[in-house]
């Protein structure tokens, strides 16, 4: 990735803890650092409970960050914000949710769902302008004008997700956080939605944070990918680099665990099967979070937390195996 590219979003040492009882704290996101460049798609992958959704929700301020900085277009948005700053932020940053059945208000007509942002931000002056915007947005996402006066229950899952995308686009944002936008959809519909997102990005120069657990789809859509494990970022690299030369043992295992839709490859592929389950984020292992399942765990892994460092150009990893001082 070109160093000179402008950073739209900078996340520095972000932490988000949830108090689950008087003495237990769930460390959902624990010290995560990454940048998102203007116009790119940044993929965030990991298994359930790794903190990828919490990261996205904390950036857009659905959750208050516990610690750390979030810079959007050079401005700090992680701390206390005035109502005005928050409003301005929500115009420039939008979100697409996972479940298209739960994220649309069943009592609102499609036109009102899409135009809600326009109304809040007073972006349209007349009713006619408002409807024109709605029609235009519906057509942009591949729906028809006639759909404007219908209710969400009249649509299929894929169509609802298109409505969700139209709503996000309504306020003309720069940055969209898509939290598992396709995992509730059927395979053939997934491809439709992914193609739509890519077209929109080309036309409008959008920047995406694409959160998903489906690694093959993330590889397809993303320019750079970050792999999370138990609240930490394990590895971050341009997507081809990450898939061709994964450094972190967790990334290697994750990649080898995906079943490939090709019988010959499936038969000859060597698979790293991880033993056991992901430990509880309430009481994570000391040192490296992954050491309890890591096939290469060493003594130091239990003692010290691996440093987050750049192992190759634009290829970041946090693993003792790749720490220069200890390199085998």
């Amino acid at each position: 990735m070109d160093e000179s590219r402008e950073k739209l979003l900078q996340v520095k040492n972000l932490k988000k803890y949830f108090k689950v009882s008087r003495k237990d704290t769930l460390k959902a996101v624990d010290d995560v650092t990454f940048d998102v460049y203007k116009g790119e798609t940044f993929g965030l992958v990991g298994e359930s409970g790794c903190g990828k959704s919490t990261t996205g929700r904390t950036i857009i301020r659905l959750y208050e960050p516990t610690e750390g900085e979030v810079l959007f277009d050079g401005e700090e948005i992680g701390g206390k914000l005035s109502t005005k700053a928050k409003k301005n932020l929500s115009r420039r940053m939008q979100m697409i949710f996972q479940d298209p059945y739960a994220s649309l208000n069943p009592r609102m007509m499609v036109k009102d769902i899409i135009a809600e942002g326009l109304d809040i931000h007073h972006l349209v002056k007349s009713d006619k302008e408002r409807m024109d915007r709605v029609y235009h947005l519906l057509e942009t996402v591949g729906l028809n004008r006639e759909h404007a006066n219908r209710y969400p229950h009249e649509f299929s899952g894929g169509q609802r997700q298109r409505i969700g995308i139209a709503r996000a686009l309504a306020v003309d944002p720069d940055f969209i956080i898509a939290d598992e936008p396709i995992s509730a959809l059927d395979v053939s519909i997934q491809a439709q939605v992914v193609n739509l997102l890519q077209e929109l990005q080309e036309q409008q120069g959008l920047t995406f944070l694409f959160i998903a657990h489906d690694l093959s789809m993330v590889k397809h859509i993303s320019d750079r990918v970050g792999v999370m494990y138990l609240g930490n970022m394990a590895e971050l690299a341009p997507s081809d680099e990450l898939y061709d030369h994964p450094l972190h043992p967790y990334t290697q295992a994750l990649l080898s665990a995906i079943p490939v839709a090709d019988p010959k490859v499936e038969r000859t592929r060597e698979r790293i099967i991880l033993q056991g389950d992901v430990p509880s984020p309430v009481d994570p292992p000391s040192g490296c979070r992954f050491r309890t399942r890591c096939p290469f765990a060493m003594e130091i892994c239990a003692k010290a937390r691996p440093k987050w460092h750049e192992a190759g150009k634009g290829h970041w990893v946090s693993c003792h195996l790749h720490d220069d001082g200890l390199k085998k």
Partner: peptide, 24 residues
């Protein structure tokens, strides 16, 4: 055909997925 080509390949670069238009 549609089912097989609407999935991205992990081991190869795909520019654009061949989506099946419409709904079941």
């Amino acid at each position: 055909w549609g089912l097989l080509s609407s999935m991205p390949k992990l081991h190869a670069k795909t520019d654009k997925l061949l989506a099946i238009p419409g709904t079941p």
